[in-house]
Design a protein around this nucleic acid. Sequence first.
DNA 1: TGAAAAAGTTGGGCACACCCCAAAAATGGG
DNA 2: CCCATTTTTGGGGTGTGCCCAACTTTTTCA
Lengths: 145, 145
Amino acid sequence: MEISDGRELSAQKVRYLKFIAEKGGRVRTTDLAGEFGVDPSTITKTIAELAKTGLLSHEPYHGICLTAEGQRYARYLVKRHRILSLMLTHYGFSHEQACEEAKRFESYVSKDAVDRICAAMGHPGQGVCGEITHDDGCLAREPAG
Amino acid sequence: MEISDGRELSAQKVRYLKFIAEKGGRVRTTDLAGEFGVDPSTITKTIAELAKTGLLSHEPYHGICLTAEGQRYARYLVKRHRILSLMLTHYGFSHEQACEEAKRFESYVSKDAVDRICAAMGHPGQGVCGEITHDDGCLAREPAG
DNA sequence: TGAAAAAGTTGGGCACACCCCAAAAATGGG
DNA sequence: CCCATTTTTGGGGTGTGCCCAACTTTTTCA
């Protein structure tokens, strides 16, 4: 895959992660399977791979939740989405259109670019689909424990 | 794949196609293999798949060139690249940085979005890495012959 | 002009991401 | 405590993209 966020997660894994973050708390296999229209077994397997990265923990039969590191990373993913969506609204996109379009390509935009765009827009506090937080300075450089 | 340009070409195929268009004329297997750092046999196989779409013709041992349809499509790809690069320069990217960043995600931006951004920028005639042409109105709706 | 070098193609195979199905296991409400 | 629901396991499939070895074609140049 050709991901540009400092981690080697595929676009699909990023989508799963973002969904888990936005839903919050304990997420069930069925929630993900329903949201993405895939078989639950697909979710189980993909979640197992994500768990190995340390971004989430999966207690079999009891749900999925993000680790502290996963939450920090997910905050970045959400921020990225909102920064890019906001950028698109500068080009005549409605909020909803911007949101949809950003989903298409956000996984392929480098963190460096997101930071730059964020800075150029004056670190906005409000995006098109929610608040924008600016606390991702230490992404992917956290001790394991 | 999750491509958003109205065709179902993967990002990699799009890169190959864009390279062929930018180089112009008859392109050799070796040119592509060198540019992308892959084995020549990989190029041969991928080109065979692209040839089936009618975007280019491949005369074995004698090179690759775009069909009229391929040229029209490639013009869109180049325009897309230049529009997105130009957009990025509005956020503090240098020309070269904008160009590199655009390459990362351009394949995932919908044609609709490119058109909208193009319009919002006033259909610019000059991009960061060359002229921008605006003749892609009839993409992907051309008779085969 | 003809053999060696270079360029290109074929066939086989590998890795990764992502997906589904059937069957088995675990959970939890009645 | 049983049965319906949820979830996991094991097996399998597809598509993309890549490499290697062996072979064919083209080109070069002595």
